[in-house]
C-alpha cells in the first residue's frame, strides 16, 4: 500500500486546503477527520481487519490501498452535483483501466448522517435508489446503447457517464446480512460492471471466485447467500443485488429506478410521482437557472 503519513501532511507543509472530490485511500487514511475518519475506519476495520469478510476482491483492494472515496455531506442539490462530479472522475479513471488488478479501484461513497434519515434497511435502500435517480438526472452522457433501460431486464445495470456500474448499498440497519453493513454510515460501493464480469464472470476462474465468495458469505452472515445473488445477464435481476434484504426472502418488489427513456415511455410506474421524480424535475430546472 502506498503511504502518505499524517505528519507529512502537517499544516505547515500543506500548500492548499482545496482537494478533489475523488480521493485515494492513502490520502484519506492520512488526512480524514471527523465523520470521514469514522467512515474510513469502519470500512477499514471490516475489510482489512476481519479475516472473514466475504468479498476477497475488496479485501485485496484495501490491503493494497486501492480504494477511492467520495464523502457526501448532505442531501441538497449541490451535494448531488458534487457527488456527480466525483463519480465522473471515477468513471474517467476507470475507463482508462489498464487491466491490472493492482489499479482496479473500487469506489466507496460515504454519506454523512446529516444526509439521510433512516432506521430500517428498506429506508436506507429507498434513499440509495433516490440518490441513483438523482445522479441519473444529473448525468449528461447518454445511456449506453447495449444496456436496457428497464431494471426488470436481467441485462440492466445502473449507468453513469456512459459506464455500466454495480452499486452495492451498505447500511447500518443490516443485522443479519453483516456483509452489507460497513459501519454507521450509509455507503454505496461502486465498481465498473465490466470489471466485475472480468474477475467473477462466467468463466471457470470467475465461477470459482463467486463460489468462494458465497461460501464466505455463509460463514460471515450466518445464513446462505441471498437467493437474489445471481450472474449478471443470466438468472437474476441486477437491481435486487444492489439492495439486498436483510434476511433471505422471496422478492416481488419493483425497482424504483427509472431511466430517462423508461420515464418517457412508462405511464404507471409505481414511483414516477414520488420524491425522486419531483426532485429530478426540480434539479433540471435549477440547473438551467
Amino acid at each position: 500500500m502506498t503511504t502518505i503519513a499524517n505528519d507529512l501532511l502537517s499544516t505547515e507543509q500543506r500548500v492548499t486546503t482545496s482537494v478533489t472530490v475523488l480521493q485515494s485511500q492513502p490520502y484519506v487514511a492520512a488526512t480524514a477527520q471527523g465523520w470521514h475518519r469514522e467512515a474510513y475506519n469502519d470500512v477499514s476495520e471490516r475489510l482489512a481487519n476481519e479475516n472473514g469478510f466475504p468479498c476477497v476482491f475488496s479485501k485485496n483492494a484495501i490491503r493494497k490501498g486501492l480504494l477511492k472515496f467520495i464523502f457526501v455531506e448532505g442531501n441538497g442539490l449541490q451535494d448531488m452535483k458534487r457527488l456527480a462530479r466525483g463519480l465522473m472522475a471515477f468513471v474517467e479513471v476507470s475507463s482508462d483501466w489498464n487491466g491490472d488488478l493492482n489499479t482496479a479501484y473500487p469506489l466507496v461513497v460515504a454519506f454523512s448522517e446529516n444526509a439521510i434519515s433512516a432506521r430500517r434497511v428498506e429506508e436506507y435502500h429507498a434513499f440509495g435508489w433516490r440518490t441513483l435517480q438523482r445522479l441519473h438526472s444529473l448525468d449528461n452522457q447518454p445511456w449506453p446503447k447495449e444496456v436496457p433501460y428497464d431494471p426488470s431486464s436481467t441485462a440492466w445495470s445502473m449507468c453513469f457517464s456512459g459506464m455500466p456500474i454495480f452499486c452495492n448499498m451498505s447500511n447500518p440497519a443490516h443485522q443479519s446480512r453483516a456483509s452489507r453493513n460497513l459501519g454507521k454510515h450509509f455507503k454505496l460501493v461502486i465498481n465498473p460492471r465490466e470489471r466485475f464480469d472480468k474477475v467473477a464472470g462466467d468463466t471457470p476462474a470467475g465461477r470459482r471466485a463467486r463460489a468462494n465468495i458465497r461460501d464466505r458469505i455463509l460463514t460471515y452472515d450466518g445464513q446462505p447467500h441471498c437467493p437474489q445473488l445471481g450472474s449478471y445477464g443470466e438468472d437474476s435481476l441486477e437491481w435486487w443485488q444492489y439492495s439486498l434484504s436483510d434476511k433471505n426472502e422471496i422478492r416481488t418488489d419493483r425497482c424504483p429506478f427509472k431511466s430517462d427513456q423508461s420515464l418517457s415511455t412508462t405511464q404507471n410506474c409505481p414511483h414516477a410521482g414520488d420524491h425522486s421524480a419531483s426532485e429530478r424535475a426540480g434539479e433540471k430546472g435549477t440547473e438551467t437557472t
Binding site: I4, Q13, R14, V15, T16, V19, T20
Partner: peptide, 9 residues
C-alpha cells in the same frame, strides 16, 4: 520544510 501537493491537492 519542503511543500507537498499530493494528487488530491
Amino acid at each position: 520544510g519542503v511543500r507537498i501537493l499530493p494528487p488530491e491537492e
